[in-house]
C-alpha cells in the first residue's frame, strides 16, 4: 500500500504556503529568493506525485524543466542582488524603489 497522491499534494500545499508567507513577510531579498525556491520545490513535489498517479513521465519532465528554470532564475536574481547591494549598500526590499512610478 503506497502513500496516496492526496497526502503528497497536501504536504506540497503546506510547503508552498510557507513559501508564500516567506515571500510576503521577509524583507531580506535573499530570503525572499529562498522562499521562492521553496515554492518551486513544493510545486515539483506535486508534479512528481501526479506523474506517479497517472503513470506518465510528463510530470517528471516538467520537474526537470522547473529545476532548470530555477537555476537560471537564481543566477540572474543573485547577480541583480549583488549589483543592487553594491550601489545601495542594502538588500532590504523596502528600500528598493528606483522603478517606482
Amino acid at each position: 500500500m503506497q502513500v496516496s497522491t492526496e497526502s503528497y499534494v497536501m504536504l506540497s500545499m503546506v510547503l508552498f504556503s510557507l513559501g508564500v508567507m516567506g515571500v510576503l513577510l521577509k524583507r531580506n531579498a535573499i530570503l525572499v529568493f529562498m522562499s521562492v525556491e521553496l515554492m518551486l520545490n513544493a510545486a515539483n513535489l506535486a508534479l512528481a506525485a501526479f506523474a506517479r498517479h497517472w503513470g506518465q513521465e510528463g510530470g517528471h519532465l516538467f520537474v526537470f524543466f522547473v529545476i532548470t528554470v530555477a537555476a537560471a532564475e537564481v543566477a540572474v536574481g543573485l547577480a541583480l542582488i549583488v549589483a543592487i547591494f553594491r550601489s545601495k549598500k542594502s538588500i532590504n526590499i523596502d528600500e528598493l524603489h528606483q522603478m517606482e512610478g
Binding site: V3, Y8, L11, E37, N41, N44, L45, A48, A49, A51, R52, H60, V63, F64, I67, A70, A71
Partner: peptide, 21 residues
C-alpha cells in the same frame, strides 16, 4: 524533498534535486 522523490519512483529527479538544488 529529494527523499520523497525516491518514494515517488523518481530516482533521476532525486539525484537532480540533490546535485542541482
Amino acid at each position: 524533498i529529494a527523499f520523497l522523490f525516491l518514494l515517488l519512483n523518481a530516482p533521476f529527479l532525486a539525484m537532480i534535486q540533490i546535485t542541482v538544488y
